[in-house]
Amino acid sequence: MKLHLKIWRQKNAQDPGGFVDYDLDGVSPDSSFLEMLDLLNEELIAKGQEPVAFDHDCREGICGMCSLMINGVPHGQDREPIKQITACQLHMRHFRDGETVVIEPWRARAFPVIKDLIVDRSAFDRIIQAGGYISVSTGSAPEANAIPIGKKDADKAMDAAACIGCGACVAACPNASAMLFVGAKVAQLSYLPQGQIERYDRVVNMVNAMDAEGFGGCTNTGECEAACPKEISLDFIARMNSELIKANLKGGR
């Protein structure tokens, strides 16, 4: 199949960047979106041009590296019945022959473009460093059943832990807010006994780190949840909010 691509090209963080049009022929409907970009890059290299830089790693939807805004939707989940997948799991059969496909990087002040479609998501790492951990003495692995965890809490913690930190929530949010990511990370540890020790310091520190990175605020539009490839629920934002309120009511005690 043939495609008309409109791709954001930007040399580096300082370059203003702009869209460049490419016509690509011979795309297999069975190839993945990233394989389609590989095909384009091979053609560009053969012509002696600079290939399009884009983030990717596992290509099986679990690492959270791919970060493409495809036709105005993070990861390009814009056609039924496909929804909530990563860009690497999107296949070309969901596009029409001859279709124009617009590919942009995530847009957020906290996610500056490094090159072309690659953005710097280390803001997420700094938020995790602020509190997304538990402090334990390392050593031999403890007996798994030594700490009982209720089924419901374990399920919720696992649902929150499904977040792969790709940043689609920030990309989708009209305010470029990171609430869904931070909510998932705060909530995950809040349900588990191991997370109780630093529970209230964690939410305060992570929310402060989130705000310091320049992400927007939440207006409860639900765009993040709809775009999340891991179906992280808005419930975790509510959970983070109540955690922060509780932390403040405790006043650091």
């Binding site: 869209f19 805004m69 105005g72 617009v102 847009r107 002040r109 765009e223």
Partner: peptide
């Protein structure tokens, strides 16, 4: 929080 706007931004749910 978003100094450079998207050329195309589709709403999924809002």
């Amino acid at each position: 929080a978003r100094p450079v706007r998207y050329s195309k931004h589709r709403k999924l749910h809002a």
